[in-house]
Simulated assay, not measured.
Amino acid sequence: MIHIGLTGWGDHDTLYGSHVSSRNKLQEYASYFPAVEVDSSFYAIQPVKNAERWTGNTPDSFQFVVKAYQGMTGHQRGELPFATKEEMFDAFLESISPYEAANKLSMVLFQFPPWFDCTRANVDYLRECKAKMKDIPCALEFRHQSWFNNQFKEKTLSFMKKENWIHSICDEPQAMPGSIPAILEPVQKDKVLIRFHGRNYYGWTQKNNPNWREVRYLYRYNQKELEDWAENIKRLHEQCKNVYVLFNNNSGGDAADNAMQLMKILGIEYENLAPRQLDLF
């Protein structure tokens, strides 16, 4: 199955009318898409009650891609709010237990920062992360091009396959070394992840801009770009049972429209979605 969705459910104004409250946005979101990325888990390990509420507000077949906490991927600035690394991972595992119990956890996404390059120490840390996550499906996304240069590309893919990582394939500006090319190779037969970050080269290379998040993901894919990706997705689906496609170009409100556009190109009409709320008038 090809699962198309968005990163987060709060910032997609084109999906929600004035009748949809912030508390009901996920339920409305699930009437359009069968999967979503939980990005709030990156900024703070979420209370168990949040996952319980979110799984309860979505259909039985709905799937969550949960982003790993920033302290687990080296993004954290300053001291971690945990006494040990083990305590941090244990807290995260507890926070995602409701997704597992509801059979709604597609994968946990480990997105590493641009300074996480291809070194022996970092390879060892990836093994450590995978061991701590036990049997939970985990996707791996890099932001440093060294992992996929001519010297290490095949070794990186082989490592991901051997260690049972799900490949997170990115569409993003080619601003080396702080970005990676789209390597269209799933390393597992069950799941592969594609994340659309947009192609805003200027925004991607911004430095010392307090509004860098708003600028970086400001991009709207055109019809030709999505048609090209539709062919890539079809080929990936021939090799992999489940292809997860998430649009992260949220800054200008383009993600939801682009996701719907891609669904139309691929001829996808999902069943078993949540019932859609209707405006009173």
Rank of each mutant, 00 (worst) to 15 (best):
P98S: 06
P186N: 05
N149L: 12
K241V: 02
R199T: 08
C240T: 13
A83I: 04
F92L: 05
V123W: 15
M260Y: 07
F159H: 06
K85R: 13
G253K: 11
E141N: 08
N122W: 10
P186E: 02
S18T: 10
N242Q: 09
E52R: 11
I4R: 07
I45S: 02
M1P: 04
L126P: 09
K134L: 03
P81N: 09
N258V: 09
I2P: 01
N200V: 02
L273W: 09
G10L: 10
T55C: 14
A182M: 13
G5S: 11
A175G: 09
K134N: 04
W147Y: 14
N149I: 12
D228C: 00
M263C: 09
I194Q: 02
I183V: 15
G10F: 07
N200D: 06
K162A: 06
S106L: 02
C118E: 13
E79N: 08
N250Y: 15
A68H: 04
A274F: 12
S95G: 09
E185W: 01
D117F: 07
Q188N: 07
A30M: 07
H167N: 14
D11A: 09
S146C: 13
E52T: 15
I180H: 01
V65T: 15
E238D: 07
L105M: 03
A91K: 07
L262E: 03
N209C: 14
R53M: 05
G267D: 05
P210S: 09
H19S: 10
Q239W: 02
C118H: 15
G198F: 05
L109V: 13
V66T: 12
L157R: 10
F247D: 06
N272R: 14
I194D: 02
A44C: 03
K224T: 11
A256I: 08
I180E: 00
F33G: 11
M176W: 13
Y69L: 06
R276W: 10
M133K: 03
S18I: 08
I4A: 08
Q145H: 15
R53V: 06
R120C: 06
G5T: 13
W204Y: 05
Y29C: 05
K264F: 01
E172G: 14
F92D: 01
I166Y: 01
